[in-house]
Each structure stands twice: as structure tokens, then as C-alpha cells.
Write a protein that binds this DNA or RNA. Structure first.
Length: 259
DNA sequence: TCAGTTGTTTATAT
DNA sequence: AATATAAACAACTG
């Protein structure tokens, strides 16, 4: 269930375990996750190279090496696991990087996105150049400018990876609920005060979620109640509204955030 | 059997 | 350029 906090965790897995280790081979169990590269190419171009410090931009992990860089996306169901030695394949394991120190396993049930290869970090940046600034590191002034220039519904704008990278459906609803702003408001209609509040709540939700390793499903969070049959606002107990906004199911509190 | 799903890309129209 | 919408991708859950 990868949202930005989960992806940050995958990056950490790479950083803590894989960095410095040499890739001996890549075992492609399901080429359906490869994007723009064949299984043979992936192995031959990566073999012998060592993982460097990984980066994250939005929901992408860039696993650099002293040669090519691996671009990973996790769609709705992907994840990354490290095992110190060889481990039998999990049910949805699609690809394994076998290194001299252990194995990095890419699991993904649905295969909605996948893995691609860039010749170097420069090409990796070029491939991801259409992404907006990362939601965790975007500066308040830049964030305000981005919101100001968009007339579409706030929910749609926040989820648009070309505007700000990293916010998915659950995170966006959680942030808007905490900022007490209606998801259908035009982004450009926010007052300066509202933009500052939105920014502050976004930072808080992201930092708290990253610490937890995912968006917490606690009862005090919108995320923790949104799948209940008749969910109520964790703050004021008002029954929550739900509708499709920007093509995704959205949940909000009509009392805290307006109808 | 059918609807729904935590995401991205592409096409299409406005 | 923005904006809005739908479809496709794939495989599971309720």
C-alpha cells in the first residue's frame, strides 16, 4: 500500500542494506514489471555494479549504482524487501537483485507500474523531470505559488504528481481533513492563511507517517475510519461525506470542511 | 458475478 | 497550458 511514507521506507531498506553491495545478477521472475528494458539487458547492464545511496522523488525510488540507475515505482501494491541470504520467492515476487551481501526483492501483486533503467543519474533525472517538487521538501513559498496558479479542485491538484510529487488518495484526504479545507475548493481560491495551514498540516502528516512507516490507520486519523460502513469524523463525530473527485473516492467531514 | 481498489500513462475533448 | 474524463494496465477482496 505504498504512499510516500511507505516509499520512504523502501528507500531506507535500500540505504541500510543494499548500499555498497555488488549486484551479481538480477532474477526476473515476471518480465511484466519491466518498463522499457528487457530482462537480459537489465542483468547484463547491472551485473558487477554496486548500489549507491538511493534517492526518492515523490513515489519513485532511484536506486543508483556506480553504473546505471534503477527506477522503481510501486503502484498500488508494490513493496521492497531485503533478505540477508537467499530466500524462497514470495507469491508476488516479480524480480530479485542478488548481491554479494543479500537479496533485494521487488514484490507487486498488480504490476500497475514497474521498474526501468537509466544509464546514469542524469538520465534518471531526465526521465522524472516532469514530476513536481517532492511534497516533503517543497518550500512554503513555492507551494503557495503552485496552489495559486491552479483553478482545479484542490484534491485533484494535490494528487497531480506534476504539481507536487508524492501525495496519493489517502494522504490527500488526510491532509485536507486536518487542514479543514473542502477537497472541491478551487486551489486558487485559498487564502494565504489557508495555504499556510495546508502546508503545515501536510508537513505534519508526512513526518508523522514516515516515522510510522505508513499512513497510520488509527481511529484518530481519517485514514483509520474511512473504510468503516458508516464512518464518522474522528474530531466531531459527524457522518463523513464521500464522492468521486478527480476520479478517486474521496472522504471528508461536512462540518469541519464544509459540504 | 460484480463492484471496488492506496497509481500512472495515454488518449480525447474542452 | 490547463482542465476533465475515461480507459488500460492486473489481480485480488468482499
Amino acid at each position: 500500500m505504498p504512499e510516500l511514507p511507505d516509499v520512504e521506507g523502501f528507500k531506507r531498506t535500500l540505504a541500510e542494506h543494499a548500499t555498497g553491495h555488488q549486484i551479481e545478477r538480477v532474477a526476473v521472475r515476471d518480465p511484466g514489471v519491466l518498463r522499457g528494458v528487457s530482462a537480459r539487458q537489465l542483468t547484463s547492464r547491472l551485473r558487477g555494479h554496486r548500489f549507491a545511496e538511493p534517492r526518492r522523488q515523490g513515489k519513485w525510488v532511484i536506486a543508483g549504482t556506480d553504473g546505471p540507475a534503477v527506477l522503481m515505482h510501486f503502484g498500488m501494491t508494490g513493496s521492497l524487501r531485503w533478505t540477508d541470504g537467499h530466500a524462497p520467492a514470495e507469491r508476488f515476487e516479480r524480480l530479485t537483485f542478488v548481491t554479494d551481501g543479500g537479496e533485494l526483492h521487488y514484490d507487486d501483486m498488480r504490476k500497475l507500474t514497474g521498474i526501468s533503467l537509466a544509464s546514469n543519474d542524469e538520465e534518471a533525472r531526465r526521465l522524472l523531470r516532469s514530476l513536481g517538487p517532492d511534497a516533503l521538501t517543497v518550500q512554503p513559498g513555492e507551494f503557495a505559488d503552485l496552489m495559486h496558479g491552479r483553478r482545479a479542485a484542490l484534491k485533484t491538484v494535490l494528487m497531480d504528481q506534476h504539481v507536487v510529487a508524492g501525495l496519493g488518495n489517502l494522504l490527500t484526504d488526510e491532509i485536507l481533513w486536518r487542514a479543514c479545507i473542502n477537497p472541491r475548493r478551487a486551489a486558487s481560491s485559498l487564502t494565504a492563511h489557508e495555504v499556510r495551514r495546508l502546508y503545515a498540516r501536510m508537513r505534519w502528516v508526512l513526518r508523522t507517517s514516515i516515522q510510522a512507516g505508513d499512513v497510520p490507520a488509527k481511529r484518530s486519523w481519517l485514514t483509520g475510519v474511512r473504510y468503516e460502513p458508516a464512518p464518522r469524523c474522528p474530531r466531531c463525530r459527524t457522518p463523513l461525506c464521500h464522492a468521486r473527485i478527480g476520479g478517486r473516492t474521496s472522504v471528508w467531514c461536512p462540518r469541519c470542511q464544509g459540504e
